[in-house]
Design a protein around this nucleic acid. Sequence first.
DNA 1: CAAATTTTGATACATCCGTATCAGGAAAGG
DNA 2: CCTTTCCTGATACGGATGTATCAAAATTTG
Lengths: 205, 205
Amino acid sequence: MPESERRTEIMEAVERLLARGGVGAVTMRAVATEAGVSLRLVQYYGRTKDDLLSSTLDRLADRSIARWRARTAHQESGRSALDEVRAFLDEALPTDEESTGFHRVGVSLEALAITHPDTAGRAYRRHLDALADHLADTLRSGTSLDAAPLDATPLDAASARLLALEVMGLAHGLGTLLMAGRLDRQEAGAVTSDYLQRLRPRLSP
Amino acid sequence: MPESERRTEIMEAVERLLARGGVGAVTMRAVATEAGVSLRLVQYYGRTKDDLLSSTLDRLADRSIARWRARTAHQESGRSALDEVRAFLDEALPTDEESTGFHRVGVSLEALAITHPDTAGRAYRRHLDALADHLADTLRSGTSLDAAPLDATPLDAASARLLALEVMGLAHGLGTLLMAGRLDRQEAGAVTSDYLQRLRPRLSP
DNA sequence: CAAATTTTGATACATCCGTATCAGGAAAGG
DNA sequence: CCTTTCCTGATACGGATGTATCAAAATTTG
């Protein structure tokens, strides 16, 4: 197996461990077992544990952005900015097993970003930056494609950025409440529905 | 020094370590050093590390609730629900050193809640529950005390609960963005200001 | 086939961790 | 004073972890 594939496999093992048991579950030996390779090989790639971890997180940030970008790319145009916000919230909230695991990884990353601002923090910031930029772009192109309603102001760049950050914040926070079991899927739907209703006069007629 | 005070001091040391370096920084020996006592004494109270940690987290949840409750109790009545939301957001966002540390502890708690759902998860849920209940109550009494505006519907219990959860979610998410440095104080103010403006027709004239 | 690359095995070492165990010292309250 | 409560010291054990090292095998590649 070529070197790059092995690297990927090992990083995927790290991600799985992160999703399952948080940072504490990531040890060199656990990674080896999870990836089905020898400890020696885990040392072979990613010389040190910090290297391995920060490489994995960088890759994670890249993939997360690419995933979201791909998800919105094949959509037909003509969706309003409100539709985009709804889609983002639907997509970002941890409702199934996969997105739950992804959110768990996100929490681990967030915690790591605090204790290791230079490595994990960088990856985290890159991730948030790209996500906010892309969401803001989506929001702007959404409104411009709209059949311009009389009372809907097209979003300027600054407003789009602020709204994107607000939506990201709400998604993250609601996700946390969902994960904690403080909110069930239905209530989350009701919250976002209320939120979107209030947002409507701003983004579409 | 009486037993209960010592317990408190040790738990405070645990909190400081959590705020500074996350879960990984909490070791029995580190707690001893931080509290200025011997390792032997840390073992004396809170027999095991899990006990010590979950006691600390329980105490933290209690204090967080009490703190917020006290903060809103001495306020004069007559504040609208919108004022309450504004106050909550102002209070909850990590803008100074103290609230930043508090948020750091919250992230640690969140991460712990995932890996230890029975101990840390319980404390986290208790914390979120009490906060949501109190905020919902505040929102309802806020509107009822308002000079009833024509178009402002008084909040029923279910709506207040949903709005409380939404506001908590937003606060948590924005807090994370602030901590990550993806948002500065000024932008956070702009976001909450926009958000409140959209909320206005719902809560006050 | 030969050579380069990729993978493993079997250990080893220093370090930190949680926990435990002895005995003994300090302080406080009756 | 003296007994009870509170606290420390020194030390140890078993386990897990990150990292390192040596040689050797398997696999791919030219």
